[in-house]
């Protein structure tokens, strides 16, 4: 298993936020991450979510806590990793990212002004990478691939298994391709970011 960056830093709890707007698959990204950790890897995970009354277009956020112990308080105290897929979501949540934390933004959807110097920051052209696969909709899974690569909180193979059992039937291959594409982009551009 890939060594966990956070674990190496002496902590066994990772708090992650995926955010964007409704319709982007934000919740699914959080769901897959939690499932990979809790079900495939046998750790503990909680997923909580928040969204507005809109089915599409409203603010949307999935908060995932991963831990080796039972998790009591299910909401985030802080953010170790922030994955932002919209400008509004980025603006709302960047302040809670811990120093040394990881920021991953969708390059075309988020403009980072006054970048923080105390974090590791990545911009991923996930929409364009998804379009190369012919389905713009899988941008969330591209982001997930990149996130898995640079954060190393969950083993990529666990993530692949979780994706396979979570996406609609018939779309497994497409989603795995999307994941691999994001992961490869991470290997190429991210790991030493």
């Amino acid at each position: 298993m890939v060594q966990r960056v956070m674990k190496a830093a002496g902590r066994d709890v990772q708090e992650i936020r995926f955010c964007g707007f409704g319709g982007q698959g934000v919740i699914l990204a959080g769901y897959i991450t939690g499932k990979a950790a809790a079900i495939i890897e046998g750790r503990h995970a909680t997923l909580t979510r928040s969204f507005g009354p809109e089915s599409r277009g409203g603010a949307c956020s999935a908060a995932v806590i991963l831990a080796d112990q039972r998790i009591a308080y299910p909401f985030l105290h802080k953010q170790d990793v922030l994955v932002a897929m919209s400008q509004a979501a980025y603006v709302e949540h960047i302040g809670q990212l811990v120093p040394g934390g990881i920021l991953i933004t969708e390059k075309d959807l988020v403009t980072v002004e006054n970048p923080r110097q105390d974090i590791r920051s990545y911009a991923v052209p996930a929409t364009r990478l998804a379009e190369e696969l012919g389905r713009k909709l899988v941008l969330n899974i591209v982001m997930l691939g990149f996130f898995t690569c640079v954060s190393r909180v969950v083993d990529p193979e666990s993530m692949r298994k979780a994706i396979q059992s979570s996406v609609p039937a018939g779309t497994e291959d497409l989603n795995l391709q999307a994941f691999n594409k994001g992961y490869a982009f991470g290997l190429e551009h991210g790991v030493n970011g």
Binding site: G22, G23, Q24, G25, V26, I27, L28, A29, Y31, K35, R135, L137, V138, L139, N140, I141, S165, S166, V167, P168, A169, G170, T171, L174, N175
Partner: peptide, 20 residues
Amino acid sequence: EGRGPEKKAAGTPAVATSPP
């Protein structure tokens, strides 16, 4: 089988990856 509604076990919107 692990099929049918189990698909929706996540209670998550499947919109992000709708089938072609």
